[in-house]
């Protein structure tokens, strides 16, 4: 095996484009995932990513950009779940489970009734290597918009997630922040769908945040670590998929999962091995 074999993937334009796309989408998801993981809303990402399917099909029927349909359906799921929870005796997790599987099922039924040139597989698992120009543009717009808005409101959203009462006490409009955050989540998912598809988007929205939380106890650092890990995974995963001849999205998520496992085991402060060693030392200290 010589060096030119190893750099072979970089010689193809579609490979480089796929890596850049994956890095942008993965990085955006990673920033969002920090908020989701801290709030305990990881499954919100799961719910919204499934719920976009009927929106995509509807957009296809009326000829609108698929991203717009997906965004609206995602927002409907996220806000509808909250509304139903507040107005019924059912608990939030049950409502969320019903709403998103219901919307997903609706999307599947609609999909089979409509003849499209979009493969269901591409929506479910992404098509990073065969991504079309228009889709790429939509994803770039969605991701950029998310990152710009987040840069402006990140501290307000962080305060809202940490202590909603204090957020209200200093005069922040928490209802607005709540729906803004859900809108950003939907927007991110729209971007992520193009890359890794519905099924694996949820991983991109949870794993990087977990890596960040395991390796840091400051929000800024957590976000940086999460984005770094996600961008590395995007490039490494796409690169590996070339040699493994495997699904690109799956390779990216697998890379993230491996990093998470390493962080959970060997993290300097919160890692399992560190804690075990600290506990052993403490025990040894007591015996002396």
């Amino acid at each position: 095996m010589n060096l030119s074999y190893l750099i072979e993937p970089f010689q193809y334009r579609f490979m480089v484009e796929a890596m850049l796309m994956a890095a942008l989408v993965g990085g955006t998801c990673a920033v969002l995932s920090c908020y989701l993981v801290l709030k305990g809303w990881s499954l919100m990402g799961d719910a919204v990513s499934h719920a976009v399917l009927p929106g995509i099909v509807l957009a296809y029927i009326v000829g609108a950009p698929l991203a717009v349909g997906a965004f609206l359906a995602g927002l409907l799921c996220a806000s509808g779940t909250g509304w139903i929870t507040n107005h019924s005796r059912l608990k939030g997790d049950a409502v969320m489970g019903v709403v998103f599987t219901g919307l997903f099922a609706l999307g599947l039924v609609m999909f089979t009734k409509v003849t499209t040139d979009v493969h269901l597989n591409h929506i479910l698992f992404g098509s990073l290597l065969g991504i079309e120009r228009s889709d790429m543009l939509q994803a770039v717009i969605a991701a950029t918009l998310t990152l710009v808005i987040l840069a402006v409101v990140r501290k307000d959203i962080l305060l809202y997630l940490f202590d909603a009462n204090q957020a209200r006490a200093v005069g922040l409009n928490t209802t607005f922040l709540h729906y803004l955050f859900l809108a950003l989540l939907s927007l991110t998912i729209v971007a992520a769908l193009q890359a890794v598809g519905i099924i694996l988007t949820v991983a991109m929205l949870i794993v990087p945040g977990c890596i960040g939380l395991l390796l840091s106890d400051r929000f800024g650092r957590m976000t940086a670590i999460a984005s770094g890990a996600a961008i590395f995974s995007a490039i490494a995963g796409t690169y590996l998929s070339y040699f493994l001849n495997g699904e690109t999205g799956a390779c990216i998520v697998l890379t993230q999962a491996i990093i998470l496992t390493l962080a959970a085991l060997f993290g300097p402060k919160y890692g399992i091995l560190f804690r075990a060693r600290a506990a052993r030392r403490a025990a040894a200290g007591r015996e002396q």
Binding site: L38, F162, R218, F219, R221, M222
Partner: peptide, 8 residues
């Protein structure tokens, strides 16, 4: 009412 694991 406070999440003490919050990275702040």
């Amino acid at each position: 009412d406070v999440d003490w694991a919050f990275p702040v």
